[in-house]
């Protein structure tokens, strides 16, 4: 099943820590978003394989913008 991770807060993507094809566990750190001058870690919503990434570093994001897609159970 595909699971979409959307941005929980408005801010700027500081770092993308994973790439397409990477296997992640639930609660692994996948990105860092800078919001209100604070670095906020974003964690994987489920275990699986990353199939798509919707943002690049330095992109500005709003709440609910797509960050990445995980194929669950991979």
């Amino acid at each position: 099943m595909k699971i979409e991770l959307t941005s929980p807060i408005p801010g700027k993507i500081m770092k993308v820590l994973v790439g397409v094809g990477d296997v992640v566990n639930e609660d692994d750190e996948v990105m860092k978003i800078e919001s209100m001058k604070m670095e906020n870690p974003v964690y994987a919503p489920a275990a699986g394989t990353i199939t798509a990434i919707g943002v690049r570093e330095n992109d500005e994001v709003e709440v609910d913008d797509l960050l990445l897609v995980i194929e669950e159970g991979g």
Partner: peptide, 26 residues
């Protein structure tokens, strides 16, 4: 400001990694 909001954000995420209280704390 904004130390206190950051404290809340960090504390909240300690108990639930998918919790982003930052904007509400701000």
């Amino acid at each position: 400001f904004p130390m206190s909001a950051r404290v809340v954000m960090k504390e909240g995420q300690k108990y639930n990694k998918k919790n982003y209280l930052l904007m509400h704390a701000m």
